[in-house]
């Protein structure tokens, strides 16, 4: 058992309707499974969380500040901070 916090930024926050969420996990949880659980709670995130890490990706998902590559390689143990940010360029 553990908690994972999720921070939403910019238009992702608008879609989620909140800037922060905390979800419980039952032991080690692959990141894709966790994101499905997240979509279950925030339905409007579904289209945004499709096609991750492809050229069609709408968002960037960070776990403790780092993008796991591939997404499926990350297993959450509890205590992590996930950031979901819009796919951008600039600077």
């Amino acid at each position: 058992m553990g908690k994972v916090s999720v921070k939403f930024y910019q238009d992702i926050r608008d879609a989620a309707g909140t800037s922060l969420a905390e979800l419980e996990i039952e032991g080690p949880t692959p990141l894709p499974l966790f994101l499905k659980k997240l979509v279950g709670r925030f339905e409007k995130l579904k289209p945004l969380l499709e096609n991750l890490q492809t050229e069609k990706a709408a968002v960037i998902v960070l776990v403790n500040g780092r993008a796991p590559i591939p997404i499926s390689s990350e297993v959450l143990m509890g205590g992590e901070e996930i950031s979901i940010l819009p796919m951008v360029d600039g600077g």
């Binding site: 921070k7 930024y9 910019q10 960070l62 500040g65 940010l85 600039g90």
Partner: peptide, 15 residues
């Protein structure tokens, strides 16, 4: 919407 400042939060979040 945001211009190049769109990346301000991202750059901070990746440290």
């Amino acid at each position: 919407r945001y211009g190049t400042a769109a990346i301000h939060t991202l750059i901070n979040q990746i440290g």
